[in-house]
């Protein structure tokens, strides 16, 4: 997607396209992080509001997906740090997942639950690396940590998810 500057109508076209192409995957990422559908929807809306306002500063150095993911993850992190949202992590169980529109394999929901039950810092890097296909460098910039820290957290997460990932590899 090319960077668009100029009249508001062009901005609106750009943000609409960004919303159409990215909101579902961002919603799912935010849900996996926040464990709550309504919070995730609020985070996604806040993300696109921020993106709309900052459209002029988006220079296309990263893809629109990466740029939006960065905003969304920071929005989620801020929501979790908020005083009125300060909370204890609840272990997510299968019945807490949103209703599905199609059948899903047990292994797939097990992997999803395993991700949601990762410690927060491992969950962050896992979602950005595996679900959003960001590089270690991009993740480090997003989270404000070093690349070795990202690599370490990914290794820890992968160890915890190994059973589920290997199960998915079975033909």
């Amino acid at each position: 997607m090319s960077v668009v500057k100029g009249p508001d109508s062009e901005r609106e076209i750009t943000i609409r396209q960004m919303i159409d192409e990215n909101q579902t995957v961002l919603l799912r990422m935010c849900y996996l992080y926040l464990h709550d559908v309504q919070l995730a929807e609020d985070a996604v809306q806040e993300t696109f509001i921020k993106a709309y306002r900052a459209l002029d500063s988006f220079r296309g150095e990263a893809s629109a997906r990466t740029w939006l993911t960065r905003i969304a993850m920071r929005t989620c992190m801020d929501m979790q740090r908020g005083f009125w949202f300060r909370r204890v992590e609840r272990r997510v169980t299968p019945e807490m997942l949103p209703d599905r529109t199609q059948e899903v394999e047990d292994g797939e929901s097990a992997l999803t639950l395993a991700v949601m039950n990762l410690p927060k810092k491992e969950r962050e890097v896992t979602l950005l690396y595996y679900y959003q296909d960001m590089t270690v460098n991009e993740i480090a910039e997003t989270l404000g940590v070093t690349q070795p820290t990202v690599s370490y957290r990914l290794r820890c997460a992968k160890e915890k998810l190994r059973t589920e990932l290997e199960r998915r590899d079975d033909p």
Binding site: T24, L97, Y129
Partner: peptide, 29 residues
Amino acid sequence: KAKFRQAIDHTLTGLEGDPFLYQRVTAQT
């Protein structure tokens, strides 16, 4: 990564984008 994304997307099929999100975003901003 591909299997990971597939598992997540299959599990969260009930979570889809809001068709009115664009209107809310532009109205708010």
